[in-house]
């Protein structure tokens, strides 16, 4: 019987190739599929090509995560406190990590980082959020475009839109303002 290879070759988004413990890399379903179904990764020449989202820095973070959780016999408390520290990184890296983990189909890590991002979003003003995530403030622009669009309609069109079918009424309701106290 052929022995299981302890290492696997991975190629990251910058085209660099590295050797990684197979046992740990197999934690990522995408890598696991490549190894088992396609027999990839056994040598440098047939390295597994990782998705564009996985940079070397992200791969190293993800492997740290897998390495910790792969060790049996850790208590839930230990795992939880590791996870908490693990996502204490700057927001930009947290986003990159989410995207990389998602591309490798590593669901527990996607859950962890998504939860951390949700916590960042919760309870902040839109301005704060735009600052943190560098979002464009492009909504006012949008309103102008919509107004122009409305002006294009004839009065009859508008009236039938407001009084008419269910779809029309629905659109009017989207204007309602949400007030939560």
């Amino acid at each position: 019987m052929k022995m299981m290879k302890p290492y696997v070759w991975l190629q990251t988004s910058d085209d660099s190739i590295q050797q990684v413990e197979q046992e740990i890399a197999m934690f990522c379903p995408l890598i696991c599929q490549e190894i088992i179904q396609k027999g990839m990764g056994s040598s440098k020449n047939c390295a597994i090509c990782l998705p564009q989202q996985v940079s070397p820095a992200m791969l190293s973070l993800i492997l740290d995560y897998c390495r910790f959780h792969q060790v049996p016999g850790r208590s839930n408390k230990e795992r939880k406190s590791y996870d908490e520290k693990f996502v204490r990184i700057d927001t930009e890296r947290l986003c990159e990590l989410t995207s990389a983990a998602d591309s490798l189909q590593l669901k527990p890590l996607v859950d962890l980082t998504s939860r951390a991002l949700a916590r960042i979003i919760e309870g902040k003003t839109p301005e704060e959020i735009r600052d943190i995530f560098h979002l464009p403030d492009d909504l006012t622009e949008n309103v102008e475009v919509e107004e122009e669009h409305v002006d294009d309609r004839s009065v009859d069109d508008l009236l039938s839109f407001i009084n008419g079918n269910d779809g029309g009424k629905l659109n009017i309701l989207t204007i309602l303002i949400f007030v939560f106290t």
């Binding site: 979003i121 464009p136 949400f178």
Partner: peptide
């Protein structure tokens, strides 16, 4: 974060109470 596919963004939002989810509509 804005370049994420809808599925990941929705997954992130799924951890928030709906009131905060609706509030994200004014981000961008």
């Amino acid at each position: 974060i804005s370049s994420f596919p809808d599925e990941i963004l929705c997954h992130i939002l799924s951890f928030l109470p709906t009131k905060h989810v609706v509030a994200t509509s004014v981000f961008s």
